[in-house]
Amino acid sequence: MLIDTVLFYLFALLVLGGGILTITRRSAVHSAISLIVSLLGVAGLYLLQQAEFLFAVQIVLYVGGIMVLFLFVIMLVNLDESAKQRQFNRQWLVALAAVAAVGVEVGFFFYRGKDAFQVAEAAPAMLPPGMGTTEVLSNSLFSEYLLPFEIASILLLVAVVGSVIMAKKRI
C-alpha cells in the first residue's frame, strides 16, 4: 500500500533526522526539541504497526512526561557555559569508528538473515468486532504479565523516591 510506504518513510525520516539532530546540536534545548520530533516519529511508526495504545502512551508519557522533565532540568541547570564549550569529547573519532564497525557487522547480519523474515508476511489476525488492540493488550498485561506489571510499579515507586532524594539539597 503506497500510503504505508510513504508514511513509513516519512516517519523514518522524522525519527532518524531527529536523532541525528539530537546528538549534534550545541544547545541542549535544540537537542530536546529534536528528540521530541524523533519521539513523535516513533509514535507514528507505532501507529503504522497497529499499536494504538503504545502510540498514545508514547505521546503522553515520553513526549509529555519525559521530555518536559528534560526541559525543566535544562532550564534548571544553566547550560549556557557548557554551550560555549567543546561539544564532542576526545574519543569521538574512535567511537565513531567502533560504532561504524558495529554497524557494518549488523548490516552483515541483516544481509545474511534477510530470508528469515518471511514470517513477517503472515496475515494479521482479525480482531473480533468491538474489541480493540488496547483491550487485548490489557488482557495480556493483567493476566499473563501481572507480576512484571507489579514489579514495574514498584520500580516506579523506587524511582520516585530515588529521584526525590537525589534532587534534595540536603538529604
Partner: peptide, 17 residues
Amino acid sequence: LLLIGTVGVLTRRNVVI
C-alpha cells in the same frame, strides 16, 4: 537509530545530551 543513539552516548560531553 540504535547506532545514532550510541554515537551520541559515546561522543557528547554534555550529560543531558
